[in-house]
Computed example of a mutant assay.
Amino acid sequence: MDHLIDDLFLFSKLDLKRVPFHFENIDIVDYLTDCVDELRYDPNLNGVKMNFLYDGKGPVTVVADREQLRRVIMNIVDNSIKYKRDKTLEIGFDLIVGEKDVTIAICDNGPGIEREALQRIFERFYRAEKSRNTETGGSGLGLAIVKQIIEEHGGKVWAESQAGKGTTIYFTLQKSKAMK
Rank of each mutant, 00 (worst) to 15 (best):
1 M>P: 09
4 L>F: 15
6 D>L: 13
10 L>T: 04
10 L>A: 04
10 L>I: 04
12 S>L: 15
14 L>I: 12
14 L>M: 11
14 L>A: 06
17 K>E: 09
17 K>V: 08
17 K>D: 09
18 R>Y: 10
19 V>H: 00
20 P>E: 12
22 H>C: 06
23 F>C: 09
27 D>Y: 05
28 I>V: 13
32 L>H: 04
35 C>P: 02
38 E>M: 03
40 R>G: 01
45 L>R: 00
45 L>Q: 00
46 N>V: 00
47 G>P: 00
48 V>W: 03
50 M>I: 09
52 F>P: 00
54 Y>P: 07
54 Y>L: 04
59 P>K: 15
59 P>G: 08
61 T>R: 07
67 E>D: 07
67 E>A: 15
67 E>W: 07
69 L>A: 04
69 L>D: 01
69 L>W: 03
74 M>I: 14
76 I>K: 03
76 I>R: 03
78 D>K: 11
78 D>L: 12
79 N>E: 04
79 N>Y: 05
79 N>D: 10
80 S>E: 08
80 S>A: 09
84 K>Y: 06
87 K>C: 14
92 G>M: 10
93 F>Q: 00
96 I>Y: 04
100 K>L: 14
102 V>C: 04
102 V>D: 02
104 I>M: 05
105 A>F: 08
105 A>M: 03
109 N>C: 06
110 G>Q: 11
111 P>D: 06
112 G>N: 02
114 E>C: 07
114 E>N: 05
114 E>D: 12
116 E>P: 06
117 A>L: 07
120 R>T: 07
122 F>L: 14
122 F>K: 00
122 F>C: 14
126 Y>N: 08
126 Y>H: 14
126 Y>Q: 09
128 A>H: 12
128 A>M: 10
129 E>P: 06
129 E>W: 07
130 K>T: 13
130 K>P: 09
130 K>G: 11
132 R>C: 06
135 E>L: 10
137 G>S: 11
138 G>V: 00
145 I>K: 02
148 Q>W: 11
148 Q>N: 06
153 H>A: 12
155 G>K: 01
155 G>Q: 06
155 G>F: 07
155 G>A: 05
156 K>Q: 13
157 V>P: 00
159 A>R: 04
160 E>S: 09
164 G>W: 08
165 K>F: 15
166 G>E: 02
168 T>A: 12
169 I>D: 08
171 F>H: 05
173 L>P: 01
176 S>Q: 10
176 S>H: 14
177 K>D: 14
